[in-house]
Simulated scan of single mutants.
Amino acid sequence: MRRAPLALAACFALTTSLAACGSDSLEDPGASGSSSSATESVDVKTDDELAAMVPAEIKEKGTISVGSDASYAPNEFLADDGKTVEGMDVDLFDAVATKLGLETKWSNGGFDTLIAGISSGKYDVSVSSFTINDERKKQVNMISYFDAGTQWVTTKGNPNKVDPDNACGMNIGVQKGTVQVDDLEARSKKCEEAGEEPIKSVVEQEQSKVTTSLASGKVDAMLADSPIALYAVKQQGDTLEALGDIYDSAPYGIVVPKDQTELADAIAEALKSIQEDGTYETILKNWGNESGAIDDFAVNP
């Protein structure tokens, strides 16, 4: 479905896979996911007023570089070619970029390196399921666009009787740099305070590896953002199942440099625009994630 980048003029009428509009191929291979089977089309056009809000240096080059960890299906993952970034976040931000009169250039990178890449100027923005929190807002600007919580997953039937509230001594998988790492650390500390064995966190660089570790029995359970966890269950329903309820819901944020307030404001306004014309809802439905829709697109909420 996704091929070589299209010229911006040809990208105003977009199909479900918006990432075809300006998404460059990547050199680094990685784990791929399965793209959405939905086919509802959307039609996105540049808004001249919004395009006028884009900082001159970005407007002049006509492209916006995006850093993302493409191992987090269905939000961002590599297509079957092992190079092209696609997913819900890609579709959403490509629609935003089109509103702003820009093409996107996606690059794959480790999740825990992306904010540093923003601060160093390696990327203009980063879109990679970043939960908005105070620590991140000290370093960058974040624009809210989706709401997600944490979900635990175990193997079918929960053979090891994992209880998220009492997982002491168990091997639990988690992706490096995520809010779930802190969650596990806090739970493990409670175990030790109660005189029990700490949780053995099995931390992987990529979420796809965390999921593989669970499916192969290397860990007893994993926890991840709810869209990612539930997608893994959907894809491997004969092997995995959700455990407990979603908790600690919080918004995801598009990341821009701390000094790029004009760009942050432009992105927030473009998000409002794709909500008003129905594009936002259509994209979320195409990926089965409409339950995470928000109606307040704010800078540093």
Rank of each mutant, 00 (worst) to 15 (best):
A7W: 02
L8H: 06
A20S: 13
L26R: 07
S32Q: 11
G33Q: 01
A38E: 06
A38Q: 04
D43E: 14
D43M: 10
A51W: 01
A51N: 00
G62P: 00
S71V: 01
K83P: 01
K83E: 08
V85E: 05
E86M: 13
D89T: 05
D94R: 07
T98G: 09
K99C: 08
L100Q: 06
G101Q: 05
K105V: 09
F111Q: 07
G117M: 01
S120E: 12
V127H: 05
F130C: 08
I132V: 15
E135K: 06
Q139P: 00
V140L: 09
A148S: 02
T150L: 15
K156Q: 04
N160S: 08
N171S: 14
V174G: 02
K176C: 02
G177V: 10
Q180K: 06
D182L: 13
D183P: 02
R187K: 15
E193R: 14
A194R: 13
E204T: 10
A215T: 04
A221L: 12
A224Y: 05
I228V: 14
A232T: 01
K234T: 09
S249L: 03
S249C: 01
Y252M: 14
D259N: 14
L263E: 04
A264F: 07
S273M: 12
E290T: 06
S291C: 02
G292R: 05
I294A: 09
I294C: 09
F297L: 07
P301S: 13
